[in-house]
Design a protein around this nucleic acid. Structure first.
Lengths: 114, 114
DNA sequence: TGACATGCCTCGAACCACAAAGTACGCTGA
DNA sequence: TCAGCGTACTTTGTGGTTCGAGGCATGTCA
Protein backbone atom coordinates (compact mmCIF):
# COMPACT_ATOMS: atom_id res chain seq x y z
CA UNK A 1 0.00 0.00 0.00
CA UNK A 2 2.23 2.71 1.32
CA UNK A 3 4.58 2.57 -1.64
CA UNK A 4 7.55 2.47 0.67
CA UNK A 5 11.19 2.75 -0.24
CA UNK A 6 10.73 4.55 -3.50
CA UNK A 7 13.88 4.57 -5.58
CA UNK A 8 16.62 7.07 -4.73
CA UNK A 9 14.90 8.51 -1.67
CA UNK A 10 16.87 6.94 1.18
CA UNK A 11 18.60 9.59 3.23
CA UNK A 12 17.04 12.37 1.18
CA UNK A 13 14.51 13.62 3.76
CA UNK A 14 17.22 14.00 6.37
CA UNK A 15 19.51 15.80 3.94
CA UNK A 16 16.80 18.27 2.94
CA UNK A 17 15.75 18.98 6.50
CA UNK A 18 19.33 19.66 7.52
CA UNK A 19 19.79 21.86 4.49
CA UNK A 20 16.79 24.02 5.35
CA UNK A 21 17.72 24.30 9.01
CA UNK A 22 21.26 25.29 8.03
CA UNK A 23 19.75 28.43 6.59
CA UNK A 24 17.35 29.36 9.37
CA UNK A 25 15.29 27.87 12.16
CA UNK A 26 11.95 26.46 11.07
CA UNK A 27 9.04 24.43 12.38
CA UNK A 28 7.78 21.14 10.99
CA UNK A 29 4.79 22.23 9.01
CA UNK A 30 6.86 25.01 7.48
CA UNK A 31 9.53 22.54 6.41
CA UNK A 32 6.96 20.39 4.65
CA UNK A 33 6.03 23.30 2.41
CA UNK A 34 9.59 24.55 2.05
CA UNK A 35 10.79 21.21 0.71
CA UNK A 36 8.40 21.45 -2.21
CA UNK A 37 9.59 24.96 -2.92
CA UNK A 38 13.35 24.52 -2.79
CA UNK A 39 13.28 21.34 -4.86
CA UNK A 40 11.24 23.01 -7.57
CA UNK A 41 8.24 20.76 -6.91
CA UNK A 42 10.40 17.75 -7.70
CA UNK A 43 10.19 16.32 -4.20
CA UNK A 44 7.24 16.33 -1.82
CA UNK A 45 7.56 15.04 1.72
CA UNK A 46 4.54 14.51 3.97
CA UNK A 47 4.35 15.28 7.67
CA UNK A 48 4.62 11.57 8.37
CA UNK A 49 8.13 11.78 7.00
CA UNK A 50 9.27 15.17 8.31
CA UNK A 51 8.29 14.82 11.95
CA UNK A 52 9.99 11.49 12.56
CA UNK A 53 13.14 12.86 10.91
CA UNK A 54 13.00 15.92 13.16
CA UNK A 55 12.60 13.78 16.26
CA UNK A 56 15.42 11.52 15.24
CA UNK A 57 17.72 14.46 14.62
CA UNK A 58 16.83 15.93 18.00
CA UNK A 59 17.48 12.63 19.74
CA UNK A 60 20.91 12.43 18.13
CA UNK A 61 21.70 16.01 19.03
CA UNK A 62 21.81 17.39 15.51
CA UNK A 63 19.03 19.88 16.10
CA UNK A 64 17.67 21.77 19.09
CA UNK A 65 13.94 22.28 19.68
CA UNK A 66 12.43 25.46 21.06
CA UNK A 67 8.71 25.89 21.73
CA UNK A 68 7.22 29.20 20.78
CA UNK A 69 3.67 30.50 21.17
CA UNK A 70 2.46 32.16 18.00
CA UNK A 71 -1.13 33.39 17.70
CA UNK A 72 -2.07 31.31 20.68
CA UNK A 73 -0.77 28.27 18.81
CA UNK A 74 2.33 26.43 19.86
CA UNK A 75 5.06 25.90 17.33
CA UNK A 76 8.19 23.88 17.78
CA UNK A 77 11.10 25.60 16.11
CA UNK A 78 14.19 23.61 15.26
CA UNK A 79 17.68 24.95 14.78
CA UNK A 80 20.93 23.26 13.79
CA UNK A 81 23.61 22.48 16.35
CA UNK A 82 27.30 22.14 15.62
CA UNK A 83 26.80 18.41 15.53
CA UNK A 84 24.03 18.86 12.97
CA UNK A 85 26.24 21.06 10.88
CA UNK A 86 28.85 18.30 10.81
CA UNK A 87 26.25 15.72 9.94
CA UNK A 88 25.00 17.92 7.11
CA UNK A 89 28.51 18.32 5.71
CA UNK A 90 29.11 14.58 5.87
CA UNK A 91 25.79 13.78 4.20
CA UNK A 92 26.45 16.35 1.50
CA UNK A 93 29.80 14.79 0.71
CA UNK A 94 28.14 11.41 0.57
CA UNK A 95 25.53 12.74 -1.82
CA UNK A 96 28.19 14.27 -4.06
CA UNK A 97 30.07 10.99 -4.15
CA UNK A 98 27.05 8.84 -5.01
CA UNK A 99 25.42 11.19 -7.47
CA UNK A 100 28.80 11.76 -9.09
CA UNK A 101 29.29 8.03 -9.47
CA UNK A 102 25.88 7.57 -11.02
CA UNK A 103 26.43 10.50 -13.30
CA UNK A 104 29.61 8.84 -14.54
CA UNK A 105 27.82 5.55 -15.02
CA UNK A 106 24.92 7.06 -16.88
CA UNK A 107 27.47 9.07 -18.79
CA UNK A 108 26.92 9.20 -22.52
CA UNK A 109 23.33 8.12 -22.69
CA UNK A 110 23.09 8.03 -26.46
CA UNK A 111 25.54 5.13 -26.49
CA UNK A 112 23.29 3.20 -24.16
CA UNK A 113 21.23 1.90 -27.04
CA UNK A 114 23.45 -1.06 -27.76
CA UNK B 1 25.84 -4.92 11.83
CA UNK B 2 25.14 -4.92 8.14
CA UNK B 3 24.90 -1.14 7.88
CA UNK B 4 21.71 -1.36 5.97
CA UNK B 5 19.90 1.42 4.15
CA UNK B 6 22.92 3.58 3.58
CA UNK B 7 21.96 7.09 2.51
CA UNK B 8 21.09 7.70 -1.10
CA UNK B 9 21.51 4.08 -2.22
CA UNK B 10 17.93 2.90 -2.60
CA UNK B 11 17.22 1.95 -6.19
CA UNK B 12 20.81 2.58 -7.19
CA UNK B 13 21.92 -1.04 -7.64
CA UNK B 14 18.99 -1.75 -9.94
CA UNK B 15 19.66 1.37 -11.98
CA UNK B 16 23.34 0.54 -12.42
CA UNK B 17 22.68 -3.07 -13.36
CA UNK B 18 20.13 -2.02 -15.97
CA UNK B 19 22.54 0.60 -17.28
CA UNK B 20 25.31 -1.94 -17.77
CA UNK B 21 23.04 -4.50 -19.39
CA UNK B 22 21.68 -1.84 -21.73
CA UNK B 23 25.14 -1.71 -23.21
CA UNK B 24 25.89 -5.42 -23.49
CA UNK B 25 25.09 -8.74 -21.92
CA UNK B 26 27.10 -9.55 -18.82
CA UNK B 27 27.30 -12.07 -15.99
CA UNK B 28 27.03 -11.36 -12.29
CA UNK B 29 30.61 -11.42 -11.24
CA UNK B 30 31.51 -9.24 -14.19
CA UNK B 31 28.87 -6.69 -13.20
CA UNK B 32 30.28 -6.46 -9.69
CA UNK B 33 33.62 -5.34 -11.10
CA UNK B 34 32.09 -3.16 -13.81
CA UNK B 35 30.09 -1.13 -11.29
CA UNK B 36 33.28 -0.05 -9.59
CA UNK B 37 34.76 0.94 -12.92
CA UNK B 38 31.93 2.92 -14.47
CA UNK B 39 31.25 4.86 -11.28
CA UNK B 40 34.88 5.86 -10.97
CA UNK B 41 35.35 3.83 -7.77
CA UNK B 42 32.60 5.92 -6.16
CA UNK B 43 30.25 2.99 -5.74
CA UNK B 44 31.06 -0.61 -4.87
CA UNK B 45 28.39 -3.28 -4.86
CA UNK B 46 29.02 -6.75 -3.45
CA UNK B 47 27.74 -10.01 -4.92
CA UNK B 48 25.21 -10.14 -2.12
CA UNK B 49 23.61 -7.09 -3.71
CA UNK B 50 24.04 -7.86 -7.39
CA UNK B 51 22.67 -11.39 -7.48
CA UNK B 52 19.39 -10.66 -5.72
CA UNK B 53 18.88 -7.70 -8.04
CA UNK B 54 19.55 -9.88 -11.07
CA UNK B 55 17.11 -12.52 -9.87
CA UNK B 56 14.47 -9.93 -9.15
CA UNK B 57 14.86 -8.39 -12.58
CA UNK B 58 14.60 -11.81 -14.18
CA UNK B 59 11.48 -12.64 -12.21
CA UNK B 60 9.86 -9.41 -13.36
CA UNK B 61 10.84 -10.03 -16.97
CA UNK B 62 13.26 -7.14 -17.29
CA UNK B 63 16.22 -9.35 -18.11
CA UNK B 64 16.71 -12.73 -19.74
CA UNK B 65 19.22 -15.30 -18.47
CA UNK B 66 21.31 -17.53 -20.67
CA UNK B 67 23.72 -20.14 -19.32
CA UNK B 68 27.05 -20.48 -21.09
CA UNK B 69 29.93 -22.84 -20.45
CA UNK B 70 33.25 -21.04 -20.47
CA UNK B 71 36.45 -22.88 -19.57
CA UNK B 72 34.44 -25.65 -18.03
CA UNK B 73 32.82 -23.05 -15.78
CA UNK B 74 29.22 -22.09 -16.09
CA UNK B 75 28.37 -18.46 -16.45
CA UNK B 76 24.90 -16.97 -16.42
CA UNK B 77 24.71 -14.14 -18.92
CA UNK B 78 21.95 -11.59 -18.56
CA UNK B 79 20.57 -9.39 -21.32
CA UNK B 80 17.96 -6.65 -21.31
CA UNK B 81 14.46 -7.27 -22.62
CA UNK B 82 12.14 -4.62 -24.03
CA UNK B 83 10.47 -4.52 -20.65
CA UNK B 84 13.83 -3.94 -19.01
CA UNK B 85 14.59 -1.17 -21.43
CA UNK B 86 11.36 0.55 -20.40
CA UNK B 87 12.13 0.06 -16.75
CA UNK B 88 15.57 1.57 -17.28
CA UNK B 89 14.11 4.62 -18.98
CA UNK B 90 11.58 5.12 -16.23
CA UNK B 91 14.19 4.76 -13.51
CA UNK B 92 16.50 7.17 -15.30
CA UNK B 93 13.77 9.79 -15.46
CA UNK B 94 13.10 9.26 -11.79
CA UNK B 95 16.77 9.71 -11.01
CA UNK B 96 16.93 12.91 -13.03
CA UNK B 97 13.91 14.29 -11.20
CA UNK B 98 15.16 13.51 -7.72
CA UNK B 99 18.78 14.47 -8.24
CA UNK B 100 17.65 17.64 -9.96
CA UNK B 101 15.45 18.52 -7.00
CA UNK B 102 18.25 17.94 -4.55
CA UNK B 103 20.64 19.91 -6.68
CA UNK B 104 18.20 22.84 -6.57
CA UNK B 105 17.83 22.51 -2.82
CA UNK B 106 21.55 22.32 -2.18
CA UNK B 107 21.86 25.17 -4.63
CA UNK B 108 24.21 27.92 -3.57
CA UNK B 109 26.09 26.18 -0.83
CA UNK B 110 28.12 29.20 0.26
CA UNK B 111 24.85 30.80 1.42
CA UNK B 112 24.13 27.81 3.59
CA UNK B 113 26.20 29.21 6.42
CA UNK B 114 23.43 31.29 7.88
C1' DT C 1 48.79 -30.23 -1.34
C1' DG C 2 47.58 -25.63 -0.44
C1' DA C 3 46.29 -21.11 -1.73
C1' DC C 4 43.85 -18.10 -4.51
C1' DA C 5 40.79 -16.16 -8.10
C1' DT C 6 36.63 -16.97 -10.34
C1' DG C 7 31.71 -17.65 -10.14
C1' DC C 8 27.14 -18.37 -8.22
C1' DC C 9 24.23 -18.27 -4.41
C1' DT C 10 21.57 -17.68 0.37
C1' DC C 11 20.54 -15.78 4.75
C1' DG C 12 19.11 -12.58 8.37
C1' DA C 13 19.16 -8.08 10.15
C1' DA C 14 18.31 -3.53 10.50
C1' DC C 15 16.64 0.57 8.73
C1' DC C 16 13.49 3.88 7.18
C1' DA C 17 10.15 6.28 3.86
C1' DC C 18 5.56 6.28 3.40
C1' DA C 19 0.27 6.78 3.71
C1' DA C 20 -3.38 7.28 6.61
C1' DA C 21 -5.54 8.81 10.26
C1' DG C 22 -6.16 11.14 14.65
C1' DT C 23 -5.99 15.26 17.79
C1' DA C 24 -6.55 20.04 18.59
C1' DC C 25 -6.75 24.97 17.85
C1' DG C 26 -8.41 29.45 15.68
C1' DC C 27 -10.67 31.82 12.13
C1' DT C 28 -14.44 32.85 8.95
C1' DG C 29 -19.11 32.95 7.29
C1' DA C 30 -24.00 31.72 7.46
C1' DT D 1 -23.94 28.46 17.04
C1' DC D 2 -22.11 25.48 14.02
C1' DA D 3 -19.71 23.82 9.92
C1' DG D 4 -15.67 23.92 7.47
C1' DC D 5 -11.02 24.89 6.54
C1' DG D 6 -6.12 25.67 7.25
C1' DT D 7 -2.61 25.15 10.56
C1' DA D 8 0.21 22.17 13.50
C1' DC D 9 1.84 18.08 15.64
C1' DT D 10 1.75 13.13 16.30
C1' DT D 11 1.43 7.88 15.98
C1' DT D 12 1.00 3.50 13.74
C1' DG D 13 1.96 -0.28 10.64
C1' DT D 14 4.03 -1.98 6.65
C1' DG D 15 7.22 -3.71 3.58
C1' DG D 16 10.90 -3.02 0.43
C1' DT D 17 15.96 -3.07 0.19
C1' DT D 18 20.79 -2.95 0.95
C1' DC D 19 24.38 -5.14 3.11
C1' DG D 20 28.03 -8.23 5.17
C1' DA D 21 29.24 -12.73 5.84
C1' DG D 22 29.77 -16.88 4.40
C1' DG D 23 28.90 -21.47 1.78
C1' DC D 24 29.93 -24.22 -2.31
C1' DA D 25 32.42 -25.55 -6.48
C1' DT D 26 35.94 -25.29 -10.08
C1' DG D 27 40.46 -24.17 -12.35
C1' DT D 28 45.26 -22.73 -12.02
C1' DC D 29 49.69 -22.13 -10.18
C1' DA D 30 53.45 -23.28 -7.07
Amino acid sequence: MAQTNPPFMSGVPELLVLRLLARQEMYGYEIVRAVRLVTGEAITLGEGVIYPVLHGLERSGAVRAKRKAVNGRTRVYYSLTTKGRLRFDRLTNEWDRISGGIHSALGDREHANA
